[in-house]
Write a protein that binds this DNA or RNA. Structure first.
Lengths: 348, 348
DNA sequence: ACCCACGGTGAGAACGTTCTCAACAGCCCT
DNA sequence: AGGGCTGTTGAGAACGTTCTCACCGTGGGT
């Protein structure tokens, strides 16, 4: 009924072989460049392939070779600059090695993540890079690993899985921040973090607490805030912490969205930075340097995180059987103008 | 030599069938839920599958069904918030429909793009969404389309390809910007755009020119700047345009990176915004509202761009054979505090 | 009692490759 | 002259599914 003749079937290896007057086996040999073949045959086959516009069917190839040259990548949200940059690191390394990447957003939802991991497994990815959300356990990851598909975790790490992991030294980073603020005389230092992302945030909280202890500053519960993961929530918490009876003189945020919200909150509350409140953010995004004052931040080696994960994964795929390793990357603390000494009025 | 026994071969449909005491055909029927089968058999098979931890091999399935449930997505750079958001739109729609997305960065390089499109084709994607870089022509896209794989272009559109496209009304957007600035008394309006991205930028340039004409403002060549696509280059051009003998009183930038650079450049040049120079950016990113003054921008419906592309592509995949269509989405002009009337000193 | 339809099932082809193996020719070496 | 090696080739199996088809039994309609 409907005319659909314009879609003629794609030429197959058999078509090429016939046109070249050789067997399928021979055609495959010359087009895939293995085994041996005579120059004349090579010429005939390549000519036939070109003439037909032959393109190999990777699916069929994968069926037999058992390798898809595809990597799975599961992140919370590709729109988050953190994951976007990590993804870029993964993609670059993968691409250079001739691998493609299958991307899935989990939105930090364990169910979505589980389904995604299964689907990617079904699609026979050669390996998986994941920023795991599920705190409950990684049965789905263990399943993959058990079937021989290597997994590399990034940013967070689920214990009990035989897999490599690339993380950042969050505790040290947070400790360093507090040290800096304490040296400037701050004693009312707020921590603004987000719910979820358990592992990462917990480490940053731990570092915060260690930092306070080292500086001899008592822990104040009203200064430790867990906001929903939205800009608005961060704004609210920042404003709240600045309007306490004894307000915070410094706010440390543990990721880029919270940092944005805190900056916004400080401005809206009419607090001058750093005179009335010092701000320290996480992740060195572009905006942190065009804002006034530019933001003091913990810069994570995000691109390297992704690149290292992909590199490690490819090593595993190539057959590396060494025991699983967790690689911890160092952060860089960049002091800019958003942090300064406590104002005389608020001191003591 | 090396012990690798821990990787036992993945169970196949045949294993399930044997354990359940039925044929492969029957096992396939119950696990894929087509045809008919008795309740007892269904129970036996599902039990066997569960016991073995059976997971279907999507590759084998795709071989026979001819569909991979995978979409290709080619963008310039996933790190660019514009593409990240569009990708999110694509991924959301795709995911909801049971499709996965294979992501490739082209870096605006035609050769990389061509190779990527070919590879994705080889991998038998069911459809492709692409922000095409190659101005030279879309032979690689035509090739795909010719083989029956639908293609949807986003943001830019290569002429002569039988494919749908989702774009934004760039001319109208730029015209609107100039109209706004002209109404504020500006006559020295600079356009800061980037090299490459031909189609999009050309449309914005056209809109700029139309806007000037409509306002009766003569075109000044020294105010039309094409920078390299880096923040630094944008900063330089912005500074340059502000230190002309007869400096620009307004700067219109045509994408988010240029906007960031221009904002930076105005600050570095010590020009107060909007008193000495008005700024209009493209793309409504988060930072545009925490910066002082907040930036007047052209907001593109980026998420919708990606979502619409995916929606259209899925329709094609489902068999829609209607003639190719180009859908043009409208932009929103958001006036914030970075634009204001020309200063009395510079006026006239 | 006969026929037909129908639910349930299995055998085997098919998808498009790669890869193993055997066959064959030509050559060198003894 | 005979044996073995090397390079080139083709036949056919294999990968793990889905799907077509034929078969069987059963039950209902005539």
């Amino acid at each position: 009924m409907t005319r659909r003749a314009r879609t003629r079937p794609t030429p197959t290896l058999q078509d090429v072989a016939e046109l070249a007057g050789v067997s399928v086996a021979t055609a495959s040999r010359v087009l895939s460049g293995y085994g041996s073949s005579s120059p004349e045959v090579r010429a005939k086959v390549t000519a036939a392939a070109a003439k037909l516009g032959y393109r190999r069917n990777s699916l069929a190839r994968s069926m037999i070779t058992g390798t898809t040259h595809t990597l799975g990548l599961v992140v919370a949200d590709i729109e988050n600059p953190f994951f976007a940059r990590a993804a870029r690191g993964v993609a670059d390394v993968a691409h250079r090695a001739g691998y493609e990447v299958l991307l899935v957003n989990s939105d930090e939802d364990p169910a979505t993540e589980r389904a995604a991991v299964r689907t990617l497994g079904d699609k026979q990815v050669d390996g998986l890079i994941i920023a795991p959300a599920s705190a409950d356990g990684g049965a789905h990851l263990a399943e993959l690993v058990g079937r021989g598909t290597p997994v590399v975790q990034i940013d967070r790490v689920l214990p009990g899985i035989e897999s490599d992991a690339i993380v950042v030294d969050n505790e040290a980073a947070a400790r360093r921040v507090i040290e800096h603020l304490a040296a400037l005389g701050h004693r009312r230092i707020a921590l603004l973090t987000s719910q979820g992302l358990i592992h990462t945030n917990q480490a940053r909280l731990a570092g915060y607490l260690q930092g306070l202890e080292a500086a001899g500053i008592p822990v104040a519960d009203d200064l430790i805030r867990m906001a929903q993961y939205t800009r608005e929530a961060a704004v609210r918490e920042a404003e709240a912490v600045l309007s306490l009876a004894e307000p915070a003189t410094a706010v440390f945020t543990t990721d880029n969205l919270m940092s944005l919200g805190a900056f916004d909150g400080a401005q809206r509350a009419g607090r001058s930075v750093p005179d009335e409140v010092s701000l320290v953010g996480f992740d060195d995004l572009e905006w942190t340097t065009i804002v006034r004052p530019p933001l003091t931040v913990v810069a994570q080696p995000v691109y390297e995180l992704g690149a290292a994960a992909a590199t490690r994964l490819l090593e595993r795929i190539e057959g590396d059987e060494s025991p699983a390793r967790t690689i911890t990357l160092a952060t860089t603390f960049i002091v800019r103008a958003s942090t300064g000494p406590v104002a005389a009025a608020t001191r003591a």
